Simulated assay, not measured.
Amino acid sequence: MQQAGVRQSISALGTGLGPDVLGQCRALFDAEQSALLAQVPVTAGDVSYGPHERHCLDLYRPQDDDPAPIIVFVHGGGFLKGDKGGTNDWPNANVGRMAAQAGFVGVVLNYRLAPDHVWPAGTEDVASVVGWLKANIAQHGGDPERIVLMGTSAGAVHVAGYLKLAGAADIRAAILLSGLYGYTPLDQRDTLYYGDPALYPDRMPLEAVASTSLPLLLACAEFDPPRFQAEFLGLMQDRLARHGTMPRAFIHSGHNHYSMAMHLGTGDRRLSDEICAFVRETTA
């Protein structure tokens, strides 16, 4: 489908979330993304980085043999669901392929999910992946000193939580797509991961993301739900107040909460070009 048609279809879906919207978004990119599956196959699949069955990741390696920067992608799913995809399932795997085609090592991971695994499980899993990369990625063509974390939705929350848990010493930068940082109240779904906000008011990663000196790229979509747009604007304003400047940011016209990550690697290169330029600049 041509980009104008995709934009029209996404606009018609509005700013809602849910399985029906998710399915319709996937259908918009299914043909193009499925055709791209074979272009960059999984270099190493279901690699274990910890003891749990969901402690697994896929690696996508570029053709260049030189040690490459690493993009680690953490999928969304509202803390309760989601999967890294793979050889036969393109959603989220498309980000790993996009990274490899741009000359980076792409890493796409699974992590433990709520309600069985609550805060800070997702963040701890991201930290475990960083530790695994530090020890092992050189043998897969990656430079362990040039790691960039990237997450969408709940994945962005876990990346932001990593800054709260581990700081910025082991990574070069972070890319946060449509995340929640603590500028709006938790909803019922969030509490399945975070617990009662009255009992645990300081679990959101607001302070860590607002105060860090780590290079950040923030993004939200034109048709993101209002809450996610408010979070984006809240963080932008907070960063401006604290640092005297805004972080690098991108408002993706013609896309919604799901399509912003789903379309990466397609002919619409606006966001992927921004991401790749940011990674190159922060890992040079």
Score class of each variant (00 low, 15 high):
residue 17 L to I: 14
residue 274 E to W: 02
residue 85 G to C: 13
residue 241 A to H: 03
residue 96 G to A: 13
residue 167 G to H: 10
residue 248 R to A: 13
residue 120 P to T: 04
residue 209 V to K: 00
residue 255 H to D: 10
residue 35 A to L: 14
residue 206 L to W: 05
residue 72 V to S: 10
residue 234 G to F: 00
residue 246 M to A: 14
residue 204 M to L: 15
residue 172 R to Q: 15
residue 54 R to P: 12
residue 215 P to L: 03
residue 246 M to K: 03
residue 40 V to C: 11
residue 263 H to R: 08
residue 216 L to I: 06
residue 191 T to P: 04
residue 78 G to D: 09
residue 59 L to E: 02
residue 47 V to S: 05
residue 43 T to L: 04
residue 115 P to T: 12
residue 30 D to S: 05
residue 66 D to N: 11
residue 193 Y to H: 07
residue 94 N to P: 10
residue 203 R to M: 08
residue 268 D to S: 10
residue 143 D to C: 12
residue 57 L to E: 04
residue 147 I to K: 10
residue 236 M to Y: 03
residue 195 G to A: 13
residue 33 Q to E: 06
residue 245 T to S: 14
residue 59 L to W: 07
residue 260 M to H: 12
residue 72 V to H: 11
residue 284 A to C: 13
residue 75 H to E: 09
residue 161 G to R: 05
residue 127 A to C: 10
residue 11 S to W: 05
residue 209 V to M: 02
residue 275 I to E: 00
residue 199 L to G: 02
residue 220 C to D: 11
residue 40 V to D: 01
residue 60 Y to S: 03
residue 11 S to N: 06
residue 55 H to F: 11
residue 199 L to D: 06
residue 236 M to I: 15
residue 2 Q to L: 08
residue 272 S to N: 02
residue 150 M to A: 12
residue 64 D to H: 10
residue 194 Y to K: 01
residue 231 E to G: 02
residue 156 A to L: 09
residue 22 L to P: 00
residue 98 M to K: 05
residue 265 G to C: 12
residue 37 L to E: 14
residue 124 E to S: 09
residue 246 M to W: 00
residue 26 R to N: 08
residue 40 V to Q: 15
residue 111 Y to K: 08
residue 273 D to V: 07
residue 265 G to A: 12
residue 223 F to S: 13
residue 279 V to I: 15
residue 252 H to A: 15
residue 87 T to I: 03
residue 160 A to Q: 04
residue 173 A to R: 01
residue 34 S to A: 15
residue 198 A to E: 13
residue 65 D to I: 05
residue 147 I to S: 07
residue 103 G to W: 11
residue 42 V to G: 01
residue 167 G to M: 05
residue 273 D to L: 09
residue 43 T to A: 15
residue 237 Q to H: 11
residue 21 V to Q: 12
residue 39 Q to C: 04
residue 153 S to C: 08
residue 274 E to T: 15
residue 104 F to C: 09
residue 35 A to V: 02
residue 62 P to L: 07
residue 28 L to P: 03
residue 67 P to Q: 12
residue 187 D to G: 07
residue 161 G to F: 06
residue 134 K to R: 14
residue 69 P to D: 09
residue 114 A to M: 06
residue 13 L to A: 13
residue 235 L to P: 00
residue 263 H to T: 09
residue 184 T to W: 00
residue 55 H to L: 08
